[in-house]
Design a protein around this nucleic acid. Structure first.
Lengths: 349, 349
DNA sequence: TTGTAAGCGTTATCAA
DNA sequence: TTGATAACGCTTACAA
């Protein structure tokens, strides 16, 4: 069954297509009587306007795009929740694109979005991406872009991030205060500014504590989780002095748990671990994981709000609209300082 | 800067719009020479066709919709991964709609999708939904629908599910074999066939073991996680005989852990727990959680494949294309039978 | 092999 | 207050 269109409604009502269109759009120049008649029939026949005809004519897609590295990740799925919420309340639709951290895919997606498919874009860039001409191109085409979390610093637009330097600093200082002397940093790609900032926080905290920064104690994520685990194990064996791990990526904290388990190192007895994470169940891990938790839902929501402000006002987004939200340090047993408390009773909070 | 369109290309090349269009679509009736000329300029100017004009004319949106209850849930985010993979390889775009288990939202979304916005739909219905007229309506409008996991049984289309009866049975029998006598079932809404099937498996396993089915030992999920925890605690206090929990919903297993912890019940000493879950870190929980794990990525992928078969062949989907994939029982410490092994050494696998 | 023109369904402009 | 008509950018008969 073909969908109803304006023409059919118009025929049925013995009105012109234009009048029907205006009635449905509640224009001032149509009489209440006809509006009522038109709406009644439209409802009865379940008329729904063809979005593409409308988009073509209005040059508005009523759609935004969300480009993220990954969706099977609590941070991004919470962010999507926030984004979807705002989009829905603006009667917008959401197209999802996953880059899987692959620059080529990000490039291909940018191409596809260049011709009006979306009215705006929320982007968290792939860690592989070093060149951003594809995003510049979209901006030149007039598509507003708001970055969140993994931002492309140089573009003069709004970015919603967290206090990554402070978080890296806090995390490292927390480990130092818990008695760690040799802290392994499982870092985010240094292509990304969040990676560099967290790293800077780490380095600064070490310096402030009079501890040396050792390049050999920094690892980047590999392709697969299994490779991460192996990589961490090898480093822990080569550097038995390591007594703390700061994971800047959620999955790396989990890999660290596995590596420690495989090597028979106790947490937090032998090694203390802190990780960036949005997993609700961090508290249920063995041992409960101390986390830096980002306000992922809010990040998505605020980024979307900024985007819709630009879309609705038809204005360029200014970098001054950028937002830096605060992450939270949630201390749990994986960084417990006292050796005698290495295995807290299960019934403790 | 306005995007380039066919007209501009045509002017520049001194060709007609039609010829340019045909050249770009690689039609047989255009000479290689012009094809080359056209493509060269299109590339140079970064021409990208307007998708909505094309959709309008071809009556094809090159877009599918995914309607799911929630994205911040490992099962669904893995399924999306599978879906996105297949969509991308078919050069399709993916619109995401989250119902948050709310029937009204599902209804509103169905309306929006009724007029050609998508060429097909992948749906996992909200647990609140009892009436499915909105989905029937979409089908009548000629939009192919494939259900996955949370299916609407009565519609004659393909459904991709897992062996829910068997899984419910296996989970319950596993608890019984581990020595449980009174098993609490944290069930999925009985509106949903997966809810009913898992329940039937639970009931059958009890019957086969000569155990009675007690209605009071079945709970449904509440609005919030906190409510779930409280509800479970209350039941455990009212029914101190409960020594096993079968959670048909991932989050309910976590709530059970919290409830047990709050009440000082040891797992698996006092209470053994098994849960449907796609969390990779089930093994890192305290204690590691025994799970029924669904092949979420494959479910998404297979459902999408069926949908694209229908879209590309322009054929109706037959219920006979339905697929039932197998879930896996992964035994871990949360259901360890022997009391002396209630707290396995940390270094054990 | 290429051009002309119609049409997809909607909205905007102008006239009545 | 309503109607006729053009236009959004693309594809496709049909003509040349």
């Amino acid at each position: 069954m073909k969908p109803i269109n304006l023409k059919k409604l118009a025929q049925e009502l013995d009105l012109s297509v234009a009048t029907v269109s205006r009635a449905l759009n509640d224009r001032y120049d149509i009489s209440q009587a006809t509006k009522d008649r038109v709406r009644a029939l439209a409802n009865k026949l379940n008329y729904e306007p063809n979005p593409y005809a409308s988009s073509l004519r209005r040059q508005k897609s009523k759609t935004i795009g969300v480009v993220i590295p990954e969706v099977a990740n609590h941070f991004f799925s919470l962010a999507i929740n926030g984004i979807e919420e705002v989009a829905r309340s603006n009667n917008y639709h959401v197209l999802i694109y996953l880059t899987h951290e692959d620059y080529q895919r990000e490039l291909a997606m940018a191409r596809l979005l260049a011709s009006g498919r979306v009215d705006g874009l929320l982007v968290s860039v792939a860690s592989e991406s070093a060149d951003f001409a594809h995003l510049e191109f979209l901006r030149e085409r007039g598509i507003p872009i708001v970055f969140f979390d993994r931002v492309y610093d140089e573009m003069p637009t709004a970015k919603v991030t967290t206090d990554d330097f402070e978080s890296g600093y806090k995390a490292t200082r927390h480990l130092l205060e818990a008695g760690c002397r040799h802290i392994l940093h499982l870092a985010v790609s240094q292509n990304l500014s969040i990676g560099r900032r967290r790293m800077e926080g780490y380095v600064q905290a070490l310096a402030d504590a009079g501890r040396p920064y050792e390049e050999s104690l920094v690892l980047l994520a590999r392709e697969t989780k299994q490779q991460d685990v192996i990589q961490i194990q090898q480093l822990l064996e080569a550097h038995p002095e390591v007594d703390g791990i700061f994971a800047s990526v959620e999955s790396q904290a989990m890999s660290s748990y596995e590596a420690c388990r495989n090597l028979g190192r106790s947490i937090p007895g032998d090694i203390k671990i802190i990780g960036f994470s949005n997993l609700e169940i961090a508290a249920l891990l063995d041992p409960p994981l101390t986390t830096i938790t980002q306000p992922a839902y809010s990040i998505g929501k605020e980024a979307a709000k900024i985007l819709f402000l630009a879309i609705s006002k038809n204005r360029v987004i200014s970098p001054t609209q950028s937002l830096v939200l605060k992450s939270e340090l949630v201390v749990r047993a994986s960084t417990l300082p006292a050796p005698q408390a290495a295995r807290p009773a299960y019934t403790l909070t």
